[in-house]
Design a protein around this nucleic acid. Sequence first.
DNA 1: TTGTATGCGTTATCAC
DNA 2: GTGATAACGCATACAA
Lengths: 335, 335
Amino acid sequence: MNIYDVAKLSNVSIATVSRVINNKPGVSAAARERVLKAIEETGFRPNQIAKSLTNNKTNILGIVMPGMNNYYSDRIDAINKVCKQRGYGLMITANYKDNNSTEEDIANFNLLYEKRVDGIIYFPTNVMQEHIDIIKHIRKKMPVVITDKEIRDLRLPCVIQDFVSPTQEVMDYFIKNQHKKIAFIKGSSYDQSNEARLEAYKVALEKAGLTYDEGLVAEGAYSVDSGYEAMLEIFTRCKDMPTAVFAANDHMAIGAMKALKDKGIKLPMEIEIIGYDDIEFAKYVTPSLSTVRVEQYVMGKLAATMLIDLIEGDLKDHHEMTMGFEIIHRESTKV
Amino acid sequence: MNIYDVAKLSNVSIATVSRVINNKPGVSAAARERVLKAIEETGFRPNQIAKSLTNNKTNILGIVMPGMNNYYSDRIDAINKVCKQRGYGLMITANYKDNNSTEEDIANFNLLYEKRVDGIIYFPTNVMQEHIDIIKHIRKKMPVVITDKEIRDLRLPCVIQDFVSPTQEVMDYFIKNQHKKIAFIKGSSYDQSNEARLEAYKVALEKAGLTYDEGLVAEGAYSVDSGYEAMLEIFTRCKDMPTAVFAANDHMAIGAMKALKDKGIKLPMEIEIIGYDDIEFAKYVTPSLSTVRVEQYVMGKLAATMLIDLIEGDLKDHHEMTMGFEIIHRESTKV
DNA sequence: TTGTATGCGTTATCAC
DNA sequence: GTGATAACGCATACAA
C-alpha cells in the first residue's frame, strides 16, 4: 500500500495524494475528500523511509551511551519526552563490551550515522582519540551534543555536569568539621570523571594541609555491593579509622553504610557519610543519606532541546551549559 | 558522499562499489582495493535509509512502552543488548500522557509503523479496543511481540508475566501463618495487571474463608512516598490493624515499612510485609524486604529474541512463554 | 569481472 | 487545481 494505490483508488495523481497527506493547499475539496476516504479505508500510512530519502531528514535523534541503567533512566526519559513533543523519534545505542570498549562506541556512532539520524547525544565516559576523530567526521553532517563534560579541541555543544565543585564542597564541609581522615569511594576508573573527582579530592586535602593517603581511597563499581566491599577494603588497609566517607554514588554510599553498621559503628556520630545522585531511596535508608543532587531529568531535557534547536537552526553558535548541584544534608551528616 | 562519488574516485561503476560494500563476490582484487581505498579516504558510509527503501528492511526494532523508569531499565537494557548482538537498532517510544492515554499509544504504534521498523515489542498496561485494532493492522506488515500479558482474540507471540500465581502464593503464605487481616497496596488501576492481582487477592481470601474488607486495600503510584501514604490510609480506615501487608512493588513496600516504623510497629513480629520486583535495595533496607522476584532482564532478552526470530523467519507459529517467579524471604517475614 | 538500467515510495518542480 | 516526471542513494537483474 503506497501513494500509487491510494491515487488509483481516489482517481487522482500521486502528487495530489502527497498534497493531502502533507496538508498542503491546492487541492479541491472533492479530491481531498476522496483521498482521505481511500486512506481511511485502506489504513494507508506514508512510508517515512522514502520520505527521509527525499527530504534528507529522518526526524530521529540518536543516543550513544554506556548502557541502560537506573542512573540514566531519568535522563533518557526526559530526552524521549522532548523528542516526542517536538516530533522526533529516538534511537538508543549502548555499549555492552567490558570497560566501555572504544570500538563499540565507534560502532554505535557509525550505526547512527548510517541511519542518518538528525543529531546525536553522546554520554561519554572514557573519551579516546578515536572518539574525537569520528565525532569530527560525523558533525560535518549532523549536530552532536555531549553531556557530562566537554571535550577539549572539539568544542561540542554540551550540558556539563560539574563533578569537581561538588567534590570540593563536600570536602570543605568535612574539613570544616575537623575531619582528618576522609575516605573516598570512587567509581570505575575507566570513567574519566572519576579521575577528575579524585583529583579534586586530593586538591582539597592539600589545601587543608592534610596528606593524601592512598589507603583511604577504594574503587567500586557503582553497585551497593561494591560500596560494601570498598568500605571493608579501606578498613582492613587503614590503621586509623576514617571519620568521614564520600562515595561517588548513593548506591555505594548505602553499601558503605551497611558495612559500617555491620561493624557496629554509629552514624553519623563516629563517621559522617555523603553520597552522590540523590536517588529515591537516599531518604529512606537509616540513617537517611546526605548526598549531592544533580537533576538528571533536567540534564536530559536541556541536551535534547539543545540538539533539536541545533538541528532546526534555531541555535547557530556554540552552546554550553553547566548543571547546578545541591548538597542535601540528611541524617548521615551531623549538620 | 554516495556510491556514485566512490565509484568515480575508484574508476568503477556503482554496482561494483555496492558489491564491495556488501562483501559480495565477483569483484577483482584490484577493483576491490581501489574501492576500499576510496571509502577509507573519504570516510564514506552507506546510507541505510536508501538501503532500507530498496530492501524493505530497516534492521530496527521498535518498543511501545509506558515510560522509561527504573522498573523497565533492565528489560530495555536486555532488549538493546540482543538487538546489538543480532545487528538491529532500537527505537523507543513512550507514553507521556496522563494515565497512559490510548491515543498516545496509538500514535506511538503509528510512528514505528511509518518508520517501517522490522518488528515491535509492546509493554501493555491498559489495553483498549483501539490497541487491538491497530495491532491487527500492523501485524499484517511486521511481527508484534507483547510482554507481561496476552491479549485475548489477538494471540500475539508473548512473554507473559504471571501476576496471579505470585499473589496466590504470597497469600497462601500469609494465610498459612494465621493472618486474618491482610492489607494489599495495589498499583495504579489503569494498569490492568493490578486488577488481576486484586482479583487474585480476593479469591485467596475467599478460599481461606476470610471476608474481603475494602478498607484493607489502598492504591499507590509505585513510588516510595505513595506506599507510605497508602499504608497510613489503611491505618486510619481500619479499626483492626492488619497483621500482614502485600505491596505491588518494592518501592511501595519500603514506603509502607517506613510508615509502620514511624508508628513504632515492630517488623516482622507485629506485621509481616512482602513486596514485588526484588529491586537492588530490597536487601539493604532494615529489616531487609521479602519480595517476589521476576527476572526483568530475562524477560527483555526473551522478548527481543522471539521478535527477531519471528522477523528472520526462524519462528513460524505462535509462541508464548511464561516467566517464572520466586518468593524471596528476608527479614520482613518471619520464616 | 564489470556496467547499465530499473525500482523502492516519497517530495517537488514544472507544465498544463 | 492537477498531473507527469526527476530526484533521493542504494541493490540487483541483466547485458556485455
